[in-house]
Computed example of a mutant assay.
Amino acid sequence: MLALGFFGWIIIGGLAGWIGSKIMGTDAQQGVILNIVVGVVGGLLGGFLLKLVGVDVQGGGLIFSFLTCLAGAVLLLFIVGKVTGRR
């Protein structure tokens, strides 16, 4: 995902964070900036976890990067929800 550059991170991260917040039902609590942060951090989390299981995340392409960000964002929102006691 590093090949996407700064604006790629913002666009892919924002989209993944927004869709992840829709899936987890937290969209009403989040704004655009938080969606971007959740998506980017989710991408880092998803990429880290995929590397741990041996998946090559560097050569995955745009759709793979988006799906990695989305899965990481959903996981991040789930963890935050459990830690804070929210749904």
Rank of each mutant, 00 (worst) to 15 (best):
M1I: 06
M1E: 09
M1G: 08
M1F: 10
M1R: 04
A3L: 09
L4C: 07
G8V: 05
W9Y: 11
W9E: 02
I11K: 00
G13S: 12
A16M: 06
G17M: 02
G17C: 02
G17W: 00
W18R: 10
G20W: 08
S21N: 13
S21L: 10
K22R: 05
I23P: 02
M24P: 04
M24R: 14
M24D: 05
M24Q: 12
M24G: 02
G25M: 03
D27F: 04
D27V: 03
A28K: 11
Q29P: 02
Q30E: 07
V32T: 05
V32G: 01
V32L: 03
I33T: 13
I33K: 05
N35R: 03
I36S: 00
V37Y: 04
V37A: 08
V37W: 01
V41Q: 11
G42Q: 09
G43I: 03
G43V: 04
G43Q: 08
L44T: 01
L45Q: 00
L45D: 04
G46M: 01
F48Q: 11
L49I: 05
L50E: 12
K51A: 08
V53T: 07
G54A: 05
G54C: 08
D56G: 12
V57D: 14
V57C: 07
V57Q: 03
G59T: 14
G60W: 08
G61D: 11
L62Y: 13
L62K: 08
L62C: 01
L62V: 14
I63W: 15
I63Y: 03
F64E: 09
S65H: 05
F66G: 05
L67T: 13
T68L: 14
A71K: 04
G72V: 09
A73I: 13
V74P: 10
L75C: 10
L76G: 07
F78S: 10
F78Q: 14
F78N: 06
I79M: 06
V80D: 12
V83R: 10
T84L: 15
G85S: 15
R87D: 15
